[in-house]
Structures are given as C-alpha cells and as structure tokens.
Design a protein around this nucleic acid. Structure first.
Lengths: 237, 237
DNA sequence: TAAATGTTAATTGTTGACAAAACATAATTG
DNA sequence: CAATTATGTTTTGTCAACAATTAACATTTA
C-alpha cells in the first residue's frame, strides 16, 4: 500500500518535528475533529513514518492543550467546552493586556521604534477591508495586529503561551469564528490600543487591550448563542 | 551493572509518565543543573527503562519550559536568564492578578464558599511562622496561599500555566530563592489580597495581587543583586 | 432481555537493533 | 604552528518486533 501516503520530510530537521507540525496542522485545519482519536498506526501509515516517530510527535503536543492523553487508551483531539472558552478568554485577556502595557512601556523607553508604524499600517489596511467584503483578509490582519503587539512586548514566553491559547480556542466547534460580527467596533478598539501604545501609556494600553478582549468574548458568545438558536441553550453534544 | 539502578514504577500508569515525573523532579531538585545535557542512554540506565521510553518522557516535557531541545544534539535543562526572570514575572503577575480577581468574583457570587476561610487560616499560620525561625514552613505556606487562589479562580488552565511559570523561574541559578527577604511585608500583601477577595471585590483583588507580584519581583531582584555583589552588575554568563 | 463472563481482534506500551549525525581527537597539510 | 582534514567514538534518530492492555464481540447465565 503506497498510495495516499504523503511522505513528508525531505531530510529537514527531524522527522518527529515535521510529523508534529503535520498533526498540528491537521487539528487546526479540522481534518482531525475535536474529540477524535489519534490512531498511531493509521497516522504513521498516512505519513509514511514509523509508529515510534508518531508517538514522539504526539507526546510533544500534549502540553499545548491541543491533545488529551489517556494511558493505554490513546490520544484524542481536545474538546473545548463553553466553560473552557470562558477560561481561555480570561487568561488570554490577562496576557494580552500585560503585553500591550509592556509594549507601550518599551515604546516610551525608545526600545520599540517600528512597532507604532506597523500598527498604524495594519489599521489603515483594516479600514480599507471594512468597505470591501473580504473576511479572510480581515482575519489575517487581525491576527497580525495581535502578533505585533505581543512581539513588541519583548516577552517571547508570553507570546508562546498566547499563541497556544488562541489555537486551543479554535478547537471550540468549527463555526465562522473570529469573523467577528462587529468589525467596525473591533477596529475602534484597535485604534484605542494603538493610540495608547503610541503615546507610551502602559495603563491606558492595558485598559484598552483588556476591554478589547472582554468585549471580543462577549461578541463571540453572543454569536454562538445566536447560531445555536434560542431553543438549544444546553451545552453541545 | 545493576547497582544504583532505581527501578521506578511498580506497574502504575505508564512507564513514560513516571519517567517524566522523575526527570521533572531531578530538574526541580537540582540534581540536573541548568544547562546540563540530558543523556538518553545514561538516564535510561539509571532508571532501568529503555531509551525510547526516556525519549518519550523528554519530549513530553519540552513545552513546559523546563527543557530545550535541539535536533540531533539532544535535550538540555533550560537556562533561565535574568531577562527571562523579568518576563516570567510579568506573565506570572498577569495571570495571578486575573486569577485573584476571578476568585473574588466567585466569592461574591457565592460559588466559592470555603476559599476565604482557607486563606485566613493560611495567614494565621504564616503570622505564627514569622516569630519562629522556620523558613521551609513559610515557603510551603506561601506556595499553598497562591495555589488556593488560583484554585479558587476556577480556571484550571490558568493554574497549569502559572505552575509551569513558577517552576521555570526556579531554574534561575540555585540560590536561597523565595525565602524572600521581607516576610513581614509579604504577609501584609497577602492580607490585602485576602481582604479584597473576602469582600468580593475583583478590582481591589487584582490590584493587590498585581502589587504583590511586582514588589515580589523587586525584592527578588534586589536579593540577586546583593548576592552578586556591587561589582558584577552585568547580566549573568 | 440484561448482566456477567470468556474469547478474539485491535491498539498502545516497551524494547533492542541499526542508521545517521555530532563530537572528540589524531593525523595531515599549507 | 594553525588550520584543516581524516578517523573513531559517542549520541541521537528511526525503525520493526514483541508484550501488555483495552475494546469489541460472542457466549453463557440469571
């Protein structure tokens, strides 16, 4: 059996690392659904590597929150509950607000010299997006905006944790998600954050960032509710 | 060669999980120093398991921040720089403050009914500790205090991240650490946090918690500086 | 029928062996 | 003598095979 075997890895780094990336991608892209079991043998056949290598990759993914592991029973794509969405938003908000405050401080101290320019550029593009109908572009710009700020915080650890949180949140069902309802409002909030960072005001940046995540959560939850309809108010599944 | 072979694991869970715990312990206890290489074969011989199992355990530890992995070169105990201590404190402060605010909210909403009692009990014990000379006990009480609050936040993800951060911070050299200089001041701050949580005031709890971590960092850095002497003011290594 | 038990198949856990890369060291060359 | 190239050793990467456990199913029993 050789068909349908994607032989990834043309001799770069280690196989296990590439397998990890591939599994990661499968999960984020939804090829592996939440709750689904990761069959080691099956994955090893699909990717054309040994089972041990797949095991290694799976183990290395556990702590990212994407996978749940049960002894002797196997690995499963983590299913995110509504309660967890709340919790993830809380942590995400805390880190993002801290990061924006740090970025503002660094701008004030003259360490970050290009950040504000980048943010404003991103904002300009976003405003243009608003008039057009290009949700995918807005989505990318939105991610880039948050990335810049976390990067500007000069705190790689914070960025790593933040990225993991966002990815884990994406596991919550598979809706339109993040193609957030109120783009205009979201842009306003980005402007507030940018302004605070630009004038090197950590407290204001913290406040604006925190508000952004909090209202973002509210918008998202409302969207979920609307999608579920007023009838099924219970938890999924 | 059979001597000095600790055969852990009298058939509980899986071997790799126990090996992981053991490696974790070795690192936290300082048996494996920061920067030291983790030799797979050596560890497998010490613990009496196969190399593959050790590999699995090591891979599962990478994302905790305790271990750095380099392709074809091996795994090393992560060396924490002074800059990283700053960053870790920032993230830790953000999460702890958020957690305390959440705990206060839950107390206010009547979800957490035993937390305040526990905190006050901890405080009482701590005050007694102050007069005696028992740094180890204070250390444990201090950890327990923080644990209670994170637990009371009802956010397991936040607690996991927090715990990892604290552990990673412990990798910074190996000094007296956390047997913090000013115990009296620390207790005052704990009292402020407890009071805010007790009256269900999230904002005040956030502020008190944030202050506690911030001043804690300042105290710690001052201690480091003093230990290094005024001569070597540069970054370590 | 439903619960409990026994049997078989599928999957995970663990190991030892071999291949490939990195490392240490000696020999070589300019 | 310094730099570089060979060479052997150590260590990591990958694999395939075997053992242990779980899951699925058939059978028995109440």
């Amino acid at each position: 059996m050789d068909t349908n075997v994607r032989n990834i890895g043309s001799r770069r780094a280690t196989l296990a690392v590439e397998v990890r990336s591939e599994i990661e991608r499968m999960i984020v892209d939804g090829e592996l659904a939440a709750g689904e079991k990761l069959n080691e043998l099956r994955i090893s056949e699909i990717l054309g590597v040994s089972r041990g290598t797949v095991r290694e990759a799976i183990r290395s993914l556990v702590d990212t929150g994407l996978i749940d592991l049960f002894a002797n029973r196997g690995a499963f794509v983590h299913e995110v509950t509504l309660q967890e969405v709340h919790n993830l938003y809380d942590v995400r908000g805390a880190i993002f607000a801290m990061g924006c405050a740090a970025a503002a401080r660094r701008v004030d101290e003259g360490i970050e010299t290009t950040l504000v320019e980048q943010l404003k550029d991103n904002l300009a593009q976003m405003r243009r997006t608003e008039s057009e109908v290009e949700p995918a572009l807005y989505y990318d710009l939105n991610i880039a905006f948050h990335d810049m700020l976390l990067e500007g915080a000069g705190n790689p650890k914070a960025k790593t944790i933040y990225d993991n949180l966002v990815r884990e949140m994406h596991l919550f069902r598979r809706r339109g998600l993040s193609i957030s309802s109120n783009i205009a409002r979201s842009i306003e909030e980005h402007e507030a954050i940018t302004a605070a960072v630009a004038r090197g005001d950590p407290d204001a940046a913290w406040q604006a960032a925190h508000t952004h995540i909090t209202t973002g959560m509210a918008r998202y939850l409302k969207m979920i509710e609307r999608a579920d309809g007023p009838s099924s108010s219970a938890l999924p599944r």
